[in-house]
Write a protein that binds this DNA or RNA. Structure first.
Length: 111
DNA sequence: AGTGGCGTACGTCATACGCA
DNA sequence: TGCGTATGACGTACGCCACT
């Protein structure tokens, strides 16, 4: 493993990774915030905009967590598969040895 | 010291899927 | 059928290592 837990650290320490500053669709949420935040005049449309922004942020946060959990489960699954491979390889080796031994016995009897 | 390749983790988007 | 969740795909950041 080349990674030393750096990114989780930066997340935990509250450092904002660069990719959070510039979201791919050019910061939809950010531009909404910009549009909604100046002044506290709460016109119905700006209230709606804020609601939309809030919903989007909640959705992104939930999806972020889901993605993390998903990766964790995937890693666990891969580890299980690797363990299973190791077990089956051992079994295979043992069976091959056993077969060899039985063949030997059979050959000597036949002589 | 600078740099390119590689591996890993992350966030986001799109979409499939299951449930009320 | 609309909604929430899970997951694949993609782009990005970052650390490490070998090479120059």
């Amino acid at each position: 493993m080349a990674v030393t837990g750096d990114e989780t650290e930066s997340a935990a320490t509250g450092d904002i990774p660069a990719y959070q500053l510039r979201s791919p669709n050019s910061g939809l949420a950010q531009s909404f915030v910009m549009a909604a935040s100046p002044g506290s005049m709460e016109s119905p449309s700006s209230q709606h905009t804020e609601e939309v922004t809030r919903k989007r942020e909640v959705r992104l946060m939930k999806n972020r967590e889901a993605a993390r959990e998903c990766r964790r489960k995937k890693k666990e699954y891969v580890k299980c598969l690797e363990n299973r491979v190791a077990v089956l390889e051992n079994q295979n080796k043992t069976l091959i040895e056993e077969l060899k031994a039985l063949k030997d016995i059979y050959c000597h009897k036949a002589e």
